[in-house]
Design a protein around this nucleic acid. Sequence first.
DNA 1: GTAGGGTTAG
Length: 580
Amino acid sequence: MNASANVRSLRAAHSHHHLLLRGCSTSLFQTLPILQLIKQCSTPKLLESALAAMIKISQNEDCHLMNQFITACTSFNRLDLAVSSMTQMQAPNVFVYNALIKGFVTCSHPIRSLEFYVRMLRDSVSPSSYTYSSLVKASAFASGFGESLQAHIWKFGFGLHVQIQTTLIGFYSGSGRIREARKVFDEMPERDDITWTTMVSAYRKVLDMESASSLANLMPKKNVATWNCLIDGFTKLGNLEIAESLFNQMPVKDIVSWTTMINGYSHNKRYSEAVAVFYRMTEEGIVPDEVTMSTVISACAHLGVLEIGKEVHMYMVQKRFVLDVYIGSALVDMYSKCGSLERALVIFFNLPKKNLFCWNSIIEGLAAHGCAQEALKMFDKMKSESVKPNSVTFVSVLTACTHAGLVEEGRMIYHSMIDDYSIVSNVEHYGCMVHLFSKAGLIYEALGLIGDMEFEPNAVIWGALLDGCRIHKNLEIAEIAFNKLMVLEPTNSGYYFLLVSMYAEENRWRDVAEVRGKMKELGIEKICPGTSSIRIDKRDHMFAAADKSHSASDEVFLLLDEIYEQMGLAGYVPETENVY
DNA sequence: GTAGGGTTAG
């Protein structure tokens, strides 16, 4: 039996079925005004009046109208309206059922979509390929359903339907079941380009690039999407050499190829190369799109070089790019990380649309720049505009509280996070709270919080406590924190110096000697200084604490002396008690 | 209506 002929006859049977649509009696002339009414609905309220109009002229039996109506309901998340009107229909057809099934999947009620699928079968309405496209997505949420759905797909004659089988591969790979995905792939008598790409992408998702490559090499002719998929996978594996070589050898590159390469460098923290690829692409006359720009701006943010960020921004302004939420939040973050909070704020206030990311970027920016009150105000504004904060938001807000010593505010926000937003406190949140409490001298409250943690505290947590102990001279708890840190980060010299200075301050010279001895024993005497760099006239200049290797270091130290003098005149007294 | 690239934090 010729399988594809079988499929063709089944398809023919289905389109014949379409010709005999039940309930489609009204002429196009009559339905058009209501159809437009439905399509123009901008609020759920208007949707209800559209339904009323439909009932009034007794066109609620019209399947085409109902299909459009359900689609409109889906976009307003008002499937209750859709259900109540469609269940009253005498004979809903396959289009009506498909619209409702799809609606439930997109409104994240997959189980209800299954309910209407069952009802559809009971009603003897034959499913179409569209029905299964939606249902495959829904089955990701009901364990075991995928398997029985696959049986149905065969039963209703779509076992060899290329698109549905491809969707099925996508479904299995989405739930990490690569072997099942491959089984579907292997059993397909016909495959198109997308089928191959989907399977290669399935391997990429689990970073099995060996299988991805060998499958791609079996392709008669690799399409661009498959090349891009391989490049992306290798960059995520950290293998930029292979990614670069694939990028260089692919016959045709499109905008996705370039963007994937830029993103690949960024993923591997090679930000200047990411930006360099962007410049190379524009030099070769390729026009970037919004996706490219958001990755490039993100790379600029990590570079922290204001001049480059500004240049890329100006390019975007010149090319009249749309300020979408991706570009918007990347720009806000870039300007704030490059030190220009003013520009970040200007961008933020000029955004036509703001999502969670945009708000998070500006709140984080304000907090990082020490503007605690403004960060909190922005947080309130975000809530008043009905944007729901997530765990990232709370890290920034709590950080702001810590910087400004707002203990009560921080405590309230922390509890609101757990009680009002059902966000589980993670290491970072605990870190913020421990820092907040211990900096304010509430060492025992900080310690109690650490005791409440349902996972092992990390070095950041104990480090935060140790820092509080230093400020408030609590040697007893400092020793506890220090002992934990000795296990977690035994080679971090900072903790040793901190404890040594605390002992020295209380003239406990025996303890000082003991810690110093331990340091010598472990060979961690040297302080690893933090370095910083600055770009002047397209050259990067590196500096480290007490470093005199730079050619202009004489000048630099002269200037530093002058700055210290000025600061002293302004009444600044440096905190030197912990400089050992 | 099925394939490949995007933003904050980590």
